[in-house]
């Protein structure tokens, strides 16, 4: 689609959150969104296809034909991005690392989304003492640094053992604890706003039960800002996982690849001029966070009509009839009701 004109009311797949915004965007906002989507897409692809993309396994230090890789080897034909101090292939570790990162993102988002949205909905809809208690707890959790929480959880979950599941769950659950209050607050605020809207009152007058009103009328209308929080949440999850690994609470290299751990091991390399062990995992973290943040930022701007840029027209153009009313209502229009074109077809 080259021009945004004459777009009919989107239907079907075009109404999906990201696709709809992509079609709507122009100029710099569109570039930002596309860059973000491409980076995020690369992350997902490499996570999905890691076994086929990576030349070696994440814990592999020797190949069957050539023997051990050797430690701190510079980039070469065998090892495109060199090897680490532990003798792992950097490229393979970076690719496999995306799998761990995506796993943490998915678990963290799924857990905090479900808990936060449900609590927010109940809290906002019913109010009263339950609402007050939940909000106080949420405020208390806000004051908690997520990394500290993650360290505590890492110890509790894995007892100091750094297995893959342990490391992933520690990062994901600490993120869940920190982010649940955000979902709760956002959904609660939206619920309170929507609760007083006329269509919810009309459902009450009809006699619909609380459950029906909550899930059919309120929940679906209060998810507007969630895509933005989800993206913020995702980048925060990646950073926490990397931070944990960097502090030494990460996953052992034989259990899974993890960028933070690799960075930690590369500290001593930096001073001895070995750049490839730190740069590539670092770049992977930066690009992941950047990609997700760009998507989030653009979605936020596009969702707000005041921030959304539109292609300005060079001259006064457009159809007048589309905005105006028909005198006497639709029925006295020429041809009566049948004479009226459906609005989706008359160029709106």
């Amino acid at each position: 689609m080259t021009t945004p004109t004459a777009a009919p009311t989107p239907r079907g797949w075009r109404r999906l959150p990201v696709v709809h915004q992509l079609r709507q965007s122009v100029g710099l906002q569109r570039v930002m969104l596309i860059v973000g989507l491409v980076l995020t897409g690369l992350l997902l692809l490499s996570a999905l296809l890691a076994p086929w993309l990576a030349p070696y396994g994440y814990g592999q230090i020797r190949s069957a034909d050539t023997g051990p890789f050797g430690a701190q080897q510079p980039p070469s034909a065998e090892h495109w991005l060199g090897t680490t101090v532990g003798g792992f292939d950097v490229l393979s570790r970076v690719i496999w690392g995306s799998r761990t990162a995506v796993l943490v993102i998915v678990i963290a988002i799924a857990a905090s989304l479900i808990i936060g949205v449900l609590l927010g909905l109940v809290s906002g809809y019913f109010g009263g003492w339950l609402d007050r208690v939940l909000v106080v707890i949420a405020d208390a959790v806000y004051a908690f640094p997520s990394l500290l929480l993650a360290i505590v959880l890492a110890i509790v979950i894995s007892g100091g053992q750094s297995s893959m599941i342990g490391g992933v769950l520690a990062a994901a659950l600490s993120i869940t604890v920190v982010f649940t209050p955000q979902y709760l607050r956002v959904v609660r605020a939206e619920t309170i706003r929507i609760k007083s809207e006329a269509f919810v009152e009309s459902a009450r007058v009809i006699g619909a039960s609380n459950g029906r009103i909550m899930f059919k009328h309120v929940l679906r209308n209060s998810t507007r800002t969630l895509p933005l929080i989800i993206t913020l949440n995702a980048s925060e999850a990646v950073l926490t996982l990397a931070g944990l690994g960097f502090l030494g609470f990460g996953i052992e290299p034989t259990k899974a690849a993890e960028w933070g751990y690799d960075l930690n091991r590369a500290i001593s390399d930096v001073t001895s001029g070995i750049w490839w062990t730190s740069v590539f995992p670092g770049v992977a973290i930066v690009l992941t966070v950047l990609g997700i943040t760009l998507v989030g930022e653009s979605l936020n701007d596009l969702a707000d009509p005041r921030l959304r840029t539109r292609r300005a027209s060079a001259d006064v153009t457009g159809d007048v009839a589309a905005t105006s009313v028909v005198p006497g209502g639709a029925l006295t229009a020429p041809g009566g009701v049948e004479g009226l074109e459906p609005r989706t077809e008359d160029g709106r």
Binding site: T3, P4, T5, A6, A7, Q24, R308, R310, R311, A312, S313, V316, T317, G318, D319, V320, A322, T323, G347, R348
Partner: peptide, 16 residues
């Protein structure tokens, strides 16, 4: 005087 607005659904003329 003619005025048109750029909207999501293309240009709309408000004053003609």
């Amino acid at each position: 005087l003619s005025v048109s607005f750029a909207t999501d659904a293309g240009n709309v003329r408000a004053v003609d």
